Computed example of a mutant assay.
Amino acid sequence: MTQIGSFTRGADGIYTGTIKTLAFDVKARLVPSDPSTTSEKAPDLRVVVSGVEIGAAWRRTSKDDRPYHSVKLDDPSFAGPIYANLFEGEDGEHALIWSR
C-alpha cells in the first residue's frame, strides 16, 4: 500500500489536499455530491482538480467497523482507473492509500 494523497476535512464537509504520484502532483478537493434521488449507487463525494471532476468516492465501513471512502480516479491521460481508499488518521488528517 502506498499513500498517494493527504487531505484535511473542513467543517463544510469538503476535503482539501494533494494527490501525488510519479506521473502527477495536483491540488484536489473532494466535495459532497448533490443528494441523488435516482440511484443508491451515486457517489458521496466528487473528486475535483482545477475545476474538472476526475473521480468519485463512496462511503464504506471496514470489517473493523472503521469508516472510510472508496475512491475511483480516472482521466483520459491515465492508462486506467486508479482505485484507492481515504482513511482518517489518528491526527485527524486523511490519507489516500492506493493498492493493487
Rank of each mutant, 00 (worst) to 15 (best):
R59N: 11
G10I: 12
L96F: 04
D65K: 09
D65C: 11
I19L: 04
G89S: 09
D44Y: 04
V47L: 09
P81K: 00
S36G: 07
R59P: 02
L86R: 07
G51R: 03
K27R: 07
F24I: 09
I54E: 01
W98K: 11
F78Y: 08
D25M: 00
F78L: 00
R29F: 03
F24Q: 09
L73D: 06
I19T: 04
Q3F: 11
L22V: 14
P67M: 15
R46Q: 10
P76N: 14
R29Q: 07
R46F: 10
S50D: 13
I54D: 00
A84T: 04
S70L: 01
I82W: 01
P43W: 09
K63I: 13
G92N: 02
E88S: 04
A79V: 00
S50W: 13
K63Y: 04
M1F: 06
I4E: 15
V52F: 01
H69E: 15
T38A: 13
T61V: 09
A84C: 02
G5S: 13
T18M: 05
I97M: 08
P81E: 07
S70C: 01
G89A: 13
E93A: 08
D65R: 14
L86F: 02
R59G: 01
E53Y: 10
G92P: 06
K63Q: 12
R29M: 04
F7V: 01
E53V: 02
D74M: 00
L86Y: 05
K41I: 14
L96V: 05
S39D: 15
G51M: 05
R60F: 14
I4G: 10
F7E: 15
E40R: 05
T21R: 07
G89H: 08
P35W: 11
K20D: 07
F87M: 15
F24N: 04
R60G: 08
S33G: 09
R66E: 13
W98F: 10
P67A: 10
S6D: 08
V49W: 03
V52K: 01
L45T: 05
V71F: 04
A57E: 11
I54R: 00
T38M: 14
